[in-house]
Structure formats: structure tokens, C-alpha cells
Nucleic acid binder design. Structure first.
Lengths: 341, 341
DNA sequence: TCAAAATATGCAAACGCTTACAATGTTAAC
DNA sequence: GTTAACATTGTAAGCGTTTGCATATTTTGA
């Protein structure tokens, strides 16, 4: 049933009348091969339809030209855009990508990393919201470089690429306050996550302080990262008498916005919304959602580029990379929304 | 810098005082091992932190427990949901997933398949809209089973899982016609693709015929699979004096809907829209979009399940699987939209 | 108690390639 | 014509497993 067993390096060697080593050299682009024999080898390779076996190659060379990507969920726009950036530059450097969804479950994250180690990946890119202690240990025990994309640990012990979350949230919060809001809700993920507590919340608090508004804990909400959760939190936001909200996730923002619209609250006239990820979700609604614009594709791409260097044992001049962000003003904020840094 | 070289099967064998073969047997769950030695081996494995090297294993056993997934774009909701279904059942059967984005470029699709063959994947799941001749040849030359998810070839030469596109489009078209529309636009992909010409267009034509309406070619539009393209085609749809549209892609549907809304056309009062994929995009807008509901996750899951059987050399009783679809009635169609089969 | 049957274990040959190192062939300067 | 220096090619030892076959070792039945 199956096609004929593909030729091995031995087949082409014997056909040309040279040794395995020579064939291996031409396959790997080694320069020390006479032009004429190189041509003959190439011809034989072509005739036999020889394709080097990557597994054997990996065993012999200890390099698999494969990297692992562990992410919460491919189905989440934010992560899939990062993944696309990763994949594109991975291909550029001839790496393949082994993808794993974890739903942010530390157990599955640990298993994923271990599994990738077993498969001898040359490197790993890790996405999520927080690094569980156990996962961190696992990562540390793995003999492959790891870089974080789109989040970071509080101690910066692992290379990562992100935007300046503190500044991004600070700017948007201030812009909202300048728009006349005294009660701006902040909807983020669990405060047990460094990215939420030390960065997003920090940016929010900084803005309040700069604008001379007292911090009110009851305006900070925790929500899951999906549309339904947004709808739910919207009720609490309303109860807290907030007149504007900043969210960390686009789907959550849409949930909030639609809750308002469905309740007859005018957006942006009576309620303004700013979200954080600027995925396609932010532009397909009416009104479209004002958002912090993260260079998602680039975050993935840069993370992958860092990883190639690490895999190549190059020294990174900077392990904590911060990419620039902007604010995309759209219909969920009043036209006079003023963005100042 | 790097952690100590991990232990090999040899290390645990010598520690316990047994041969490689025995260790290999316990690792692989072979039953022919005395309970007492099995315990000792397991203990040694634990102490040494031994993890079998999947690459070596792959070389020796000719099985990599890895499958390849080639898809147009992870960033596309439709495909990423299929991918999630694939990934989940792949994990269930202990397979890892090698992911490749092709943007539907036949050249990249060919490269992807060849590359996966090189990496010795045990099977491949292919997504897209059409199989180019060259790609088809490449697939045929690969020594690994392939199953198509979410599309099919006209000759059914490859296993695949889909919904009944003809029926789905026929039903929605008829429902729209019953709602009083004489000019229903059909927005699909290139007619060079079997899935568009032989299935979607067919369903549309069948509906017209059954409802006694003449087929008007000028109501059939071709569009790229994204939001901006939807906006563009909307203009042509308007010019053609269509009063309703059926689209093959949710982003396209949103583009059309927003174009209408922006032009002051009331949806659904003056224009009705039905889309095909029922992704999150269809529910986050106001109005939410009526859609054919495909079991996307299941399509991926079932495709993967088929693949496991194929990889296991089991016989498939049915190679062309059709999963049931429904119609999700939402705000872009009038409430009295009547769905009949 | 012993041979035969059933279980456990070991041996060693693959698997297909990379890569030091050794060997051979060429070239060029004198 | 030599020989040193360089370019080209070959040898063979791994890489870490799996697995068919041979060799113990234990169990079973009479």
C-alpha cells in the first residue's frame, strides 16, 4: 500500500561511489567537496528522491531544528497572533514548531515542557499569564533555552518580550480620567499573577495618583478571559457605579460593552471602554473598541528571534525586551479622548 | 551553564544491574518483566530522573508519535478551532502536533508536507480550501496517512471530515427566500475550488430551483477570507441590489454587515445576513449574526481520531465523514426566519 | 522429581545520520 | 623534481533506543 521505502544516505553514496561522509557533506552544504563530485551527488539525490531523515539527523547531531511553543489556547486571538509571529520567523530560520495548548493549567504546562524536553526540542517559547513555581522548576531543569512571550515573571529571571504594561495602562487610565471620569473600573486577571498586580494594577494606581484621585479597591475587578465572563463582570462594574472601564482582554471588553448596550447604556456617551489587545475583535464591532495596540505579531517574532540566538549560544545584550505600544482611538471612547504619555 | 546531561537507558540499566532490553521493556509497559525487577527499574528511573529520548526512540521504532497539521492560518478563528479539536484528541492519544501555516499557498503547502515527511511524522491533517495538483502528488508520495479537515476534494480520494455544505447552504438560502427575498447574494471563495463550486454554489442553486427563482450569476460574489474583503464585496452586493447575503466566512459577513450599518442600511430590517462558521465573531456583534453552526471542534477531533486509526493500520468503515450542522438564528435575520430542511 | 512449557532476561544488530580523525590526492613554490 | 600546505574523501565510532532471537530461569503437570 505504502510508497517504496525512501532512499537513505547509504543508497546515494553507493550509487555515486563515494562514502556516506561525502554525501552528508554535500547535503549539509559543507564547502570541502569538489564541485564535480558535488554535482554527481546532487544528481543521485535527485534521481533517488532522497530526503534526509530528520530523526536520524537529530539523534546524531543532537539538534532537532524543532522548537516547542506552549500556549494557553490557539483559539484565543491574542495568543494565536503571537503564535503566527513565532511561526513565521521560526520557518525563516528553518525551525519547525511543536504546539501545545495548556489552558493555563500548571499541571499541563509542566507536562508540556517535560514532553518537549523528551522530544529534544532545541528551544521553547512559553506563553501564559503566570509561571507557577512547579513549572518554573521544570523549565529550569530542561536543557533548552526558554523565552517568554507576552508576559513575564516578577524577577525577570527568564528572557521575555513584552510591552510596557505599566505605561500602557497608566496612559489609558489617565486619558479616561481627563475625559471626566472619576470612577474608572479596571478589569484584569487574578492579582496573584505578577502581570496583573505588579504591572497592570500598578499602571492604574499610578494614573490615579498622578491625577489626584483616590484608589478605590472596589473598582478593580477580576475576570476570566472570555466574552461570557465580560458580560458577568459588567454587572458588577455597573453596580460599582463606574462610568468607564479598562480591560485586559478584548473579549472581556466586548462582553462589557454588549452588556451595556443591551441594558440601554450608550457607549461611549454614558460609558467608555478601552481594551488592551487590539485583536480583530476590537474592530468588527459597532462601535469599534478603543484599544492599547500591542505589536502582537512582533512580540512573537522577536521572542522567536531571541530564541534562535540563544539556541545558537549567542549572548543576548538584553534579555528583557520591551516593544513599543500605541493607543488606537476608536468608537468606545469620546472623540476628545486625549492620549498623553 | 546547562543542567547535567540527562541519564540514558544505559545508566538505569547498569544501576539496576539489568540489560538495556529489560529497562526498555518496563519503560514501554511490556508485560514480560518480573514484578520485582520492574519495581527496581522504576525506582532507578525515578532516582536518575531518566526520560527516554524520543528522537532515539523514533529512529529505532520508526514511529515519532508526532503528527503534522498544515493549515492556512492559526490566526483564523475557523481553523484555530479545528486545530484545538485536533490538538486535544492528539494529546489524548499521546501524539504531539507539528504546526505549519501556509496561507493557502500551494508552494508552501508542498514544502510543508515534504518537511513533515522528512521529520517522519506518523500522520498529517490538512486544512485549506482546495488541494492543488502538485500538493496532491506530494501527499500521495508521502509515507504517512493524511486526512482532510473542513474541506474536501471533488473525487473524495482522501479521507476527510466535513458538514454537508450543499444542504447547509440550501437550507439557509431557502429560509432567506421564504423571508421574502428575491435577490439573495452568495459570497464565497474562488469557484476554482471544489468546495465552492460543487458544494456551496450547488446548495444555493438547488435552493433557488426549489423555490422557483431563476439563478442570476451576478448575485454570486467571490471574496477573500477577511473583514476588509467583506467591506469591499459589500459595495458590489449593494450595487447588485441584493437584499440579503449568505457568506462562507464570518469575518466577511461582519465586513458586509458593518458596511451596511455604516451606510445606514438597517440590519436585519433592510438587509439580512447569514454566515457559515459560527465563530465567536458571530456572537460579539450587535446584532449578532445568524449562522450555520458547524461543529468545528468536533471536525478537528474526528479528523484526528480517524488519523489515529489510519496510523494504527485499522480499516475505516467510512472515509468521508459528514458531521451534522444546525442553523443558529440570531439578530441579522428577521425573527420569523424559518428553517426547514 | 523432571521434562516440557511458560516466563524473564540478555545479546547484539539495526535505525540513518554526523563528525572527529586519518588517509589520500593536488597544487604551488622553489 | 620535491615537499610542504592545502583540498578532498574515507573510516568508523557514536547518538539512545527498539526488537528478534537466544539463553536462562521459573512454573507446571504428572
Amino acid at each position: 500500500m505504502k510508497k517504496k521505502q525512501s532512499a537513505t544516505i547509504y543508497d546515494v553514496a553507493s550509487r555515486v561511489g563515494v562514502s556516506l561522509a561525502t554525501v552528508s557533506r554535500v547535503v549539509n552544504g559543507n564547502t570541502n567537496v569538489r564541485e564535480s563530485t558535488k554535482r554527481k551527488v546532487l544528481a543521485a539525490i535527485d534521481e533517488l528522491g532522497y530526503h534526509p531523515n530528520a530523526v536520524a539527523r537529530g539523534l546524531a547531531s543532537k539538534k532537532t531544528t524543532t522548537i516547542g511553543v506552549v500556549m494557553p489556547d490557539v483559539t484565543d486571538m491574542y495568543y494565536s497572533e503571537l503564535a503566527r509571529g513565532i511561526d513565521d520567523v521560526a520557518n525563516m530560520y528553518h525551525y519547525d514548531v511543536l504546539l501545545t495548548n495548556t489552558d493555563e493549567d500548571p499541571v499541563r504546562e509542566t507536562m508540556a515542557v517535560n514532553n518537549l524536553a523528551t522530544k529534544q526540542v532545541d528551544g521553547i517559547i512559553f506563553m501564559g499569564n503566570e509561571l507557577d513555581r512547579e513549572v518554573l522548576n521544570t523549565i529550569a531543569s530542561v536543557d533548552a533555552p526558554v523565552v517568554l512571550a507576552g508576559f513575564l515573571t516578577s524577577d525577570g529571571s527568564l528572557p521575555s518580550v513584552n510591552i510596557d504594561y505599566v505605561a500602557a495602562i497608566r496612559e489609558s487610565t489617565k486619558a479616561l480620567i481627563r475625559n471626566g471620569h472619576q470612577r474608572v473600573a479596571l478589569v484584569i486577571g487574578p492579582l496573584t499573577h505578577a502581570i496583573n498586580k505588579q504591572y497592570r494594577l500598578k499602571g492604574y494606581q499610578d494614573a490615579l495618583e498622578e491625577m489626584g484621585i483616590d484608589y478605590d479597591e472596589s473598582l478593580v475587578f477580576t475576570s476570566h478571559q472570555d466574552y461570557a465572563a465580560g458580560m458577568q463582570v459588567a454587572e458588577r462594574v455597573t453596580a460599582a457605579k463606574a462610568t468607564a472601564a479598562i480591560t485586559y482582554d478584548d473579549e472581556v471588553a466586548l462582553g462589557i460593552m454588549n452588556y451595556m448596550i443591551d441594558k440601554g447604556v450608550k457607549v461611549p456617551d454614558d460609558f467608555e471602554v478601552v481594551t488592551s489587545n487590539n485583536t480583530k475583535f476590537a474592530i468588527v464591532t459597532r462601535p469599534a473598541v478603543t484599544s492599547i495596540s500591542q505589536p502582537k505579531y512582533d512580540i512573537g517574532a522577536v521572542a522567536m528571534r531571541m530564541l534562535t540566538k540563544l539556541m545558537n549560544n549567542e549572548i543576548l545584550e538584553d534579555t528583557q525586551i520591551t516593544l513599543p505600544h500605541t493607543i488606537e482611538r476608536r468608537g468606545t471612547t469620546k472623540n476628545d479622548l486625549e492620549i498623553k504619555m
